[in-house]
Design a protein around this nucleic acid. Structure first.
Lengths: 154, 154
DNA sequence: ATTACATAGTTCAACATCGAACCAAATGGA
DNA sequence: TCCATTTGGTTCGATGTTGAACTATGTAAT
């Protein structure tokens, strides 16, 4: 096998990797969404979860970066959460251009209920993951994600 | 740690897993698309690739299943490929409701050129994947995807 | 043959995503 | 201080995705 063939074989493997990742992303998103109240998706849940687990009162831009989405996409997501009263957007006292996103009591309740309804179907995955080192798997993925993120804005 | 806490910890880990997968899916799709001609995305490439590598002349529904997308999504993707003359849709002689998707010479050329322009950026990933057993990684993902697929339409 | 049901594919409408253009506030020279 | 540039956020328009409803063909049962 010459050098070009080797490169092609490696590339095919990498393509298969991202192909699987893309399909799993689709399928899992659909599964998650199905367990959330109508009109809400994983993004909404993820933002609430992030505010509670990482830090409350973050700026929209910080959240956009955390989830690797364009800032206008985050505007859209936060709009939905705000209309539903799950977060409050307040002006950022440190920067007149900016805002802060604070989760409300309703938001906390929503997140808790979402977890309660999501956990059971995740438990169904345990048998599938029995032979998988999830810790390592996530670690590998984080490395790949970190690289892609760095390569993004060149 | 009691049973509920354990379940929550496991669930958090699984959530992190799908979270990473979702983000990588976003980022890698953007990267791929950027290297393809305007108006074409990974799906278009994937379909052409599938027709060549797996089997030419498949039905739209078979392709939709292969990529785990709803059939109307595949209709949309095939529409783009057909308008561009990269595939031809012919009636299925075995079934009057159905069609067959055949890749054209232009389609083959498009796919070859796409590979040529995609491979270099995939090679950039090699250092990142040096410590990763990609074979095993893909295997684990396939197992997860297979489960999700089976759980989909229950 | 008739009827009921299942399957392949399209259309339509709702919604998500995202690049580009835009506005306002902040920053950094000179 | 003034001006150019950068940064946080929104708006707008184009496109992708998908559920639901629909058409047409095939299949099975009686």
């Amino acid at each position: 096998m010459n050098r070009v063939d080797e490169a092609q074989a490696k590339a095919a493997q990498i393509f298969a990797l991202f192909n699987e990742i893309g399909i799993i992303s689709q399928l899992s998103r659909a599964q998650f969404d199905a367990h959330l109240p109508d009109g809400f998706s994983v993004q909404h849940f993820s933002v609430l979860n992030h505010l509670l687990r990482v830090k409350n009162g973050q700026t929209p831009l910080a959240l956009a970066r955390a989830f690797q989405v364009p800032k206008n996409t985050m505007t859209h997501t936060l709009g939905g959460l705000e209309r539903a009263g799950l977060v409050a957007l307040k002006p950022n006292p440190d920067d007149g251009r900016s805002k802060q996103v604070w989760i409300s009591d309703e938001g906390r309740t929503f997140r808790d209920q979402a977890i309660a309804s999501l956990v059971p179907s995740m438990m169904d995955l345990l048998p599938v993951l029995a032979d998988v080192d999830v810790e390592k798997l996530v670690g590998d993925l984080v490395r790949i994600r970190t690289y892609l993120d760095a390569a993004r804005d060149n």
